[in-house]
Design a binder for these strands. Structure first.
Lengths: 233, 233
DNA sequence: TGTACATCAGTGAACGCGCGTTCACTGATGTAC
DNA sequence: TGTACATCAGTGAACGCGCGTTCACTGATGTAC
């Protein structure tokens, strides 16, 4: 128990307290939504007076930010570890694994998903700490394309439509920053594919498929296979 | 002024009052979001006591429902009238017109867009009155595909991937209900395209493109052209 | 055309709640000598 | 190893707000004869 260089008991208890607060807040989220997340309700549930929470989070927005970062990280982690389970050469399998990991996580944590991919919480402004975690998902898709390009199995689409100059310049900048080695046209298709994944999950979660599709898993799998065809995976 | 068979002055004033309430509520929406839409605040702005609103809407949820229906109708109307301005044979032009109409409307009414395509309002359950208006947008896309099929210019994709049986059955049912004359594989591509439109708009509106793309109109136009290629328009 | 009655809009008070944040404080835990 | 002081967690009261909904009511507008 005491093999670590003595992390003070106080700071360990503090870390546990922060976790408890976030866990309870996540449960609240599911009941009332982000816009109505209440510090007092969290404190009540935790059996503590509401002002006590200010020892851990400077404000309600700070707590929200922590939940948002955690959600991006959890979704990214789900995608990454689904990807990691497969052979690097199985491009289509990896793509489908990521798609289903995203959908499964979203179905298991609908309110956290809404927090990051739904309408923004009114009055809340995201600080820059969220951008790193927010990228993990799409970067996993990028790694598939990069492996495919490196193996000569995936390449710039040949169907001819090149981005106009202004768009091409922006795509190049994004490529150089985050997706080295991927031709810009292919990267544009990758971004569209990622939007398709999240768009389809959002449609399902936000009720657009009500009374339309019943077997949503099968429909999703089919659509993601069509996207894979398109990407050449 | 009095050529109609005497719509009573009272009912005309009543209709105007309902419009005023909705207009003020839409403005509120933009400030505090749907979850915090407050009847009392609307009443205050209208210069009326809060209980007076109950003559017009039975509850806060009823007011929300009215706003949701209006939003679907406004978006559908924008798409339909953009489509109607073009020659029926201009399939690609019609598609792009609809895409841009959707995006333009969403940018002009971000909170109403969030109301219909963002995270659901917690505790709110949509009644069935919303399903008709909700379909107008995607039906406009359907009419392009139908015209293309009728003219022999658009057809079932030949790239081979057919939906599995369970999905095919659901697609067939949806097709027979709402998209007569369109082969199911093509319809599936159409649904994916529609998801791509709204997914891209949502990404832009909900902040996923922050620090990524600056010229969003150009990027959107490019991506929608890629989708048009895919659909064979 | 005039009167009697019914309908409806809006009032104001009340019920029973909720919230985020600040502040001075007590008492327990950790640290330095 | 023991003591003195500093740090920190949590309390409880308060400030100044907000909300949806109900109800008995007044007074104006509309309708039927």
């Amino acid at each position: 128990m005491t093999e670590r260089p003595a992390v003070s008991i106080r700071s360990r208890v503090r870390a546990e307290m922060i976790e408890s607060i976030k866990t309870i807040a996540r449960a609240q989220l599911a009941e009332v939504g982000a816009a109505n997340l209440s510090l007092r309700a969290v404190a009540r549930e935790l059996g503590v007076v509401s002002s006590a929470l200010y020892r851990y989070f400077a404000s309600r927005d700070d707590l929200l930010t922590a939940l948002i970062i955690d959600a991006y990280d959890a979704l990214g982690e789900a995608a990454e570890s689904a990807d990691a389970r497969l052979d690097r050469a199985e491009l289509r399998g990896r793509w489908l694994a990521i798609c289903h990991a995203v959908r499964d996580w979203a179905l298991a944590h609908p309110h956290e998903y809404a927090l990051i991919y739904g309408s923004p919480v009114p009055g809340y402004r995201a600080p820059t700490d969220t951008v790193g975690p927010a990228q993990r998902g799409v970067l996993a898709l990028g790694s598939i394309l990069r492996d495919g390009v490196a193996a000569g199995r995936v390449s710039e689409p040949t169907d001819g439509r090149r981005p106009p100059a202004a768009v091409g310049a922006e795509l190049t900048r994004v490529r150089d920053l985050a997706f080295p080695g991927i031709p810009v046209g292919l990267m544009a298709r990758g971004i569209a594919a990622w939007i398709q994944v999240l768009g389809t999950v959002s449609f399902e979660l936000f009720g657009q498929f009500n009374n339309v599709f019943a077997d949503r898993a099968a429909h999703f799998d089919y659509q993601m296979n069509v996207v894979a065809d398109r990407l050449g995976l």
